[in-house]
Design a protein around this nucleic acid. Sequence first.
DNA 1: ACCGTAGCTGACCGATCGGTCAGGTCTGAC
DNA 2: GTCAGACCTGACCGATCGGTCAGCTACGGT
Lengths: 182, 182
Amino acid sequence: MPRPPSAMRRQILGSALRLFAEHGFKGTSLHDIAVEARCSKASLLYHFAGKDAILTELLTPPAESLSAMVGELSVLEGGRAVEPAVTGYVGLAMRFHLEVKIIFAELPDMLGHPVLAVIPRAVDQLAAALAGRSEEPGARVRAQMVIGGVAVTVAADVDVEPDTMRAELVQGALRTLGHQTG
Amino acid sequence: MPRPPSAMRRQILGSALRLFAEHGFKGTSLHDIAVEARCSKASLLYHFAGKDAILTELLTPPAESLSAMVGELSVLEGGRAVEPAVTGYVGLAMRFHLEVKIIFAELPDMLGHPVLAVIPRAVDQLAAALAGRSEEPGARVRAQMVIGGVAVTVAADVDVEPDTMRAELVQGALRTLGHQTG
DNA sequence: ACCGTAGCTGACCGATCGGTCAGGTCTGAC
DNA sequence: GTCAGACCTGACCGATCGGTCAGCTACGGT
């Protein structure tokens, strides 16, 4: 649906991503974005149907990547899905760390947006994979701990080398789950 | 500083806590709180100096509890602080789970409030205790994972018995940290 | 009976929000 | 030269925000 990208359009998206991640969606006004992107507020609304449309376009790539990943996970049987789920989720979270920050800060009531509505369902499926498809309460709690722990750690500005961060996140998550590395 | 409590005052605080946790601070208007508390918007501002004052009064108890806890932790030497830090943090997070939700969703830029400004510093000290006072990057990442994982799990509405939840959070956190239970 | 005051309210205010609109500017095709 | 359309803007709009204010009611002390 998006038009062929222009320079201004890309600049608006970049400014909005930074501001949404720093101050939240509701905490960022169209005026703020316009100032950061060095254009007028009216120009924003020439390129995008509205504030929601900007958010939707920003969160569509991570949402689709997440959905695709849980799709691949779904063909794996119980325990075999745990390690790919961990490495896949850590990778996505690091790649889209600013988007993760937006999602975890503002998701509570911004369902209703069609694109964002799929995120909670995908996260549920991810949690199921992390729990090794177990319904046991402890497994579900541990899976939730991994999802939250990775997201918060990636969103925080911890001053650590990306490679170190990724390795520690994966190992920490596997230990949290009590998963024996084969 | 607060006046002697009245029934209306307590009802306003309860309504605000629920609404802030569900829709966020910026996502909740004084009108919303007034409707939920069955009073007028002007009555809110008779009991409280402003919207910020309501938030401050809600978050003061958890902030003070957290500061007190990290104070007690500070007298313990390195490794001995880890287990008390975990059990203490899990206990606080479960007791103030709605406040935790508010803090993690809206803290980014609401520093400036004097009461809230102490929270990030206390969290940093908590992270240091969880990391066993180690400066090693991996230890810091793991500590951050525990802080985020516990907070997000407690804030999510996972349908699990509180006792199970607490035990799993403590065990999961200790496993994440790679801490050998003695 | 009188009064002070705590509790509460409807009406109103300026600021800011997201969004609209008519019109200006620039550029490439013909 | 001129026309079409993409790009951009200042001015403006209604709605909603947090907050103010004058005044009403109810009640305990004297």
